[in-house]
């Protein structure tokens, strides 16, 4: 098991290496650099800017720049953000926790809703409850998340003023106090619900289909032939088998969320990774963009590994050694 994980992590190194080259090339291929904006400024001295370019090594050949960049990364130095005037690690560090809270909040609510709904829908297939749930599913599939989030914002923040319209916490609250935590949670409610209510439908549909599929499998007939009552057939045989693919999907799901939700974070101006990514791209803050791309890619690779590990833990047919 440990050998497997270690081998997989070692296997990621070449992948990340190739990716870093791609990311770096793309960043370089984009028009302009961190100093382009400064040129527009009539007060800026063009000579001073040229000098800065040399100082920062922006005139060096690409491969020299790449090697310098990758060397720094190896030392944990992702460079400096030109818009935030601080280290990239700090910029990301400030926001990553917000995204993690949002992500896990969304995940938690998604599963809390999806699992019971999926089970009801799958077990009592074609009942009125199933029909109601299916209706909700269609609605969820048809609604784009940014429209839904705007609607939530309009209703619960502007119209009824139940929750704050943006940010992750109100100013002037002492971090670490209980009211700080409550305030944070209060800010999370709308973004989390907007994400979760839409994300749920995919999982509900998936779980429902798995249950219906598992119901017709031969071993369920075998279980019934032993005289096991219906409810016990579900709890003992059907559900565990139906959960398999969903459990395995968890790994991917987590990394998808760590990347941050661009829409939700932007609409609620929630200071997280997704929002940071959008603003950094627009302001050509490449050191932040490259760091974010590398980070989410690494998270994706870890996510696939996590999925494999989960699957091997829940399915005895898949054993990793």
């Amino acid at each position: 098991m440990w050998k497997f994980i270690l081998r997989r992590i070692l296997g990621m190194i070449p992948q990340l290496f190739v990716l870093s080259i791609l990311v770096f090339m793309m960043a370089k291929a984009m028009p302009g650099d961190a100093l382009t904006g400064r040129q527009m400024d009539p007060k800026a001295d063009p000579e001073r800017i040229a000098e800065q370019r040399v100082q920062m090594g922006l005139n060096d050949p690409v491969h020299v720049q790449y090697i310098r960049w990758i060397k720094n990364i190896a030392h944990g130095d992702w460079g400096v953000s030109y818009t935030h005037k601080t280290r990239v690690t700090e910029v990301i560090g400030d926001r990553i926790w917000n995204t993690v809270y949002l992500a896990f909040g969304t995940l938690l609510i998604t599963y809390l809703l999806a699992i019971p709904l999926g089970i009801i829908s799958g077990r009592w297939n074609d009942s009125w409850m199933d029909k109601a749930i299916t209706g909700y599913n269609y609605l969820g599939y048809a609604t784009p998340v940014f429209i839904f989030a705007l609607l939530m914002l309009f209703l619960f923040s502007f119209t009824f003023a139940l929750f704050p319209a943006g940010g992750s916490v109100d100013p002037y609250i002492e971090p670490g106090t209980f009211s700080y935590v409550l305030n944070k949670i209060n800010h999370l409610v709308l973004p989390v619900m907007s994400g979760a209510l839409v994300a749920t439908v995919t999982t509900v549909q998936y779980l429902k289909n798995e249950i219906i599929d598992t119901k017709t499998r031969d071993f369920i007939r075998t279980a019934r032939s032993k005289g096991i009552p219906d409810s016990k057939v579900y709890s003992g045989h059907i559900l565990r088998n139906a959960f398999l693919p969903i459990a395995a999907f968890l790994g991917y799901e987590i990394t998808g969320l760590v990347g941050g939700s661009v829409f939700i974070e932007s609409i609620y101006s929630y200071p997280g990774i997704g929002q940071l990514f959008v603003t950094s791209v627009m302001l050509r803050d490449f050191s932040v963009v490259t760091a974010l791309v590398m980070m989410t890619s690494f998270a994706t690779l870890l996510g696939t590994l996590l999925s494999d590990i989960i699957l091997s833990a829940v399915d005895p047919r898949i054993r990793i050694e």
Binding site: R217, D218, F219, R221, T222, A223, R224, S225, K226, G227, I228, P229, D230, H237, R240, N241, L244, V314, D315, P316, R317
Partner: peptide, 27 residues
Amino acid sequence: EAQMNKLRGKDLGMIFQESLTALNPLM
């Protein structure tokens, strides 16, 4: 159903054909 469940597996046993699909893979 409840009366039948008392007989199934106790008085009446069944052996199925494809024993790989007829057994729960996770148990």
